[in-house]
């Protein structure tokens, strides 16, 4: 069986849904080995998952954008003999894996959806309007592993749970990699407020609001919590300062691909649509019957979100009884 190297730029007290999904993608290809850059204490209990054979760690934790992470990856590839390296397409992981591809003189495919047993990668392109497949030019006789970064939410969470099950603690291999000196220095780090809601890019359900909220996101927050959803917004709403910029869904913000996207008071211009049009089901609420969002909504309500959403919340609570 071939070896697959998975890269986690940081590992917390539990695997995130996106990390579980990466392990599931990798386990379908072969024996899984995981390189972890930043961690606290002993990371191995968290990685006690069936199919995970070995864990590569640096001598000390390497928080991004530490450049020695690329050394860790390069050494891990040599140790594991991996035929493919998988990571997330979030900024820090993408940066490290992009540099690894240069060091190894190999191809990089970024923002993938899935990968087949013969290492053909499927991804969504041009803001979800195309699906492409691609592979290494040298796929028949690869000299170096293919490097692939993945977007989250491509495997059903129930399926991930059946694929990623508790197993024995993997073997630990501490590699002689230490932090670099000089060049890029982190002078200050401030933890961002951790919301109890799921991360926008990974959420299975997203509730998003725009200009039509008139600046009051309270009903959307309540609805999001009722549905266990992530909270998003249009650029108009983030530019107005009604909600933090990290919540922006669209071409220049977060791209989401949830099972359900509820759009409230958003007109649905091209920039917004680019960030959400691969959602499974789209529900739209807007006062303007000509709003573009209705062209792509599976269920649309022409109405005032300030009346419709409280009624939705009431009905959801009634059903939960």
């Amino acid at each position: 069986m071939s070896n697959v190297l998975v890269f986690f730029d940081e590992l917390g007290e539990a695997l995130t849904p996106a990390q579980k999904e990466l392990i599931a993608q990798a386990a379908a290809l072969g024996e899984v080995r995981i390189a972890v850059a930043a961690y606290d204490g002993d990371p191995t209990p968290v990685l006690a998952v069936n199919g995970v054979q070995e864990v590569y760690l640096p001598e000390v934790s390497l928080p991004a954008p530490e450049v020695a992470i690329v050394d860790l990856l390069e050494t891990s590839v040599a140790e594991s003999g991996a035929v493919v390296v998988l990571g997330s397409s979030t900024a820090d992981a993408n940066d490290a894996l992009a540099r690894l591809a240069v060091r190894l003189d190999t191809g990089l495919i970024s923002g993938a959806a899935s990968i087949s047993a013969d290492l053909v990668v499927t991804k969504s392109e041009l803001a979800g309007s195309y699906t492409t497949t691609s592979q290494l030019v040298s796929a028949a006789t690869p000299a170096q592993p293919l490097v692939v970064t993945f977007k989250p939410n491509n495997i059903d969470p129930q399926r991930v749970d059946t694929l990623v099950t508790d197993g024995e603690q993997p073997e630990v291999n501490v590699l002689p990699v230490r932090p670099s000196v000089g060049g890029v220095e982190i002078e200050e780090r401030t933890a961002m407020e951790v919301s109890a809601r799921p991360a926008l890019a990974e959420a299975r359900v997203v509730v998003a609001g725009g200009r039509g909220t008139d600046g009051d996101f309270t009903p959307l927050e309540e609805l999001a919590d009722e549905l266990g959803a992530g909270l998003g917004a249009s650029r108009a709403a983030t530019d107005a300062g009604w909600i933090e910029h990290a919540a922006q869904v669209g071409q220049t913000g977060v791209t989401v691909s949830p099972q359900l996207y509820i759009s409230a008071g958003i007109s649905g211009a091209v920039h917004q649509r680019a960030g959400m049009q691969t959602a499974g089901t789209i529900v739209a609420i807007n006062k303007d019957e000509d709003a573009q969002v209705f062209e792509i909504a599976d269920f649309g309500v022409v109405g005032d979100l300030h009346e419709v959403i409280p009624q939705m919340i009431e009905e959801l609570r009634r059903r939960k009884g």
Binding site: Y130, T132, D298, V301, V302, E307, I313
Partner: peptide
């Protein structure tokens, strides 16, 4: 290039579904 594109397929465009006007029961 190190990577070759094998296939490209346009996604079928999303089409509008059911659109209703709120008559006091749209939330339900």
């Amino acid at each position: 290039p190190k990577v070759r594109v094998l296939t490209t397929a346009a996604r079928p465009p999303r089409t509008a579904g059911e659109i209703i006007t709120d008559e006091g029961d749209a939330g339900v």
